Computed example of a mutant assay.
Amino acid sequence: MPSVSMRHAVRAIILDEDDRILLCRFTIPDPAGTVVWAAPGGGIEPDETPLGALRREVREEVGLMIEADPPHVWHQEVVAPGHSPGYDGVINDYFLVRTELFEPRGELSDDQLAAEHISELKWWSLPDVSGYHGPDLLSPRDLAGLLRTLITSGTPTRPVPLGL
């Protein structure tokens, strides 16, 4: 059986005191202009731990400094060649970060954010997420249900496995 090359990434479920979630609008050139609202985060560099990568990505993209070790709440494996260029798929580990509402502005310039395919940062309430019917995608696909469970049931004892 051929070996599968997966991109390992971390994502932050950033919730404010009113349970709003901070999402990034990613415009992915291939397939043609796919637009996805997803949690901030990105790939783990070879010399990084997952939490080190999470701290770096969140600081760069949204400007939040993560001090404590946030709980690991979701785990997602997507085996789909082409989903992440150069890989056969992606493994996303999601961590819950609680914070007060802040104006997201990371260390990256607008041009650097654009190079990361990020075009917007926005706080969403649970009704905003569950009632969204626009042209963009939300990731993971069942973000509303997952978020509702996380808010009402609290941090899971083990990371919840996710689909797409």
Rank of each mutant, 00 (worst) to 15 (best):
M1H: 15
S3G: 09
M6K: 15
R7E: 11
V10N: 01
D16R: 00
D18F: 02
I21D: 03
L22H: 02
R25C: 13
F26G: 03
T27Y: 07
D30I: 08
D30W: 06
G33Q: 09
G41C: 06
P46V: 03
P46T: 01
E48C: 07
T49Y: 02
L51I: 11
L51S: 03
A53E: 06
L54S: 00
P70Y: 02
H72M: 07
V73G: 01
G82T: 02
H83P: 05
S84L: 09
Y87H: 08
G89N: 12
L96H: 02
R98Y: 06
T99V: 01
E100A: 08
E100I: 03
E100Q: 14
L101S: 12
F102S: 04
E103R: 08
S109H: 01
Q112F: 05
L113Q: 04
A114Q: 10
S119V: 15
E120S: 15
S125R: 15
L126G: 09
P127K: 13
S130T: 14
G131I: 07
G131K: 06
Y132A: 14
Y132R: 11
L138V: 10
D142E: 10
G145H: 10
S153V: 13
T155C: 09
P156D: 10
T157M: 09
R158F: 05
R158I: 10
P161G: 00
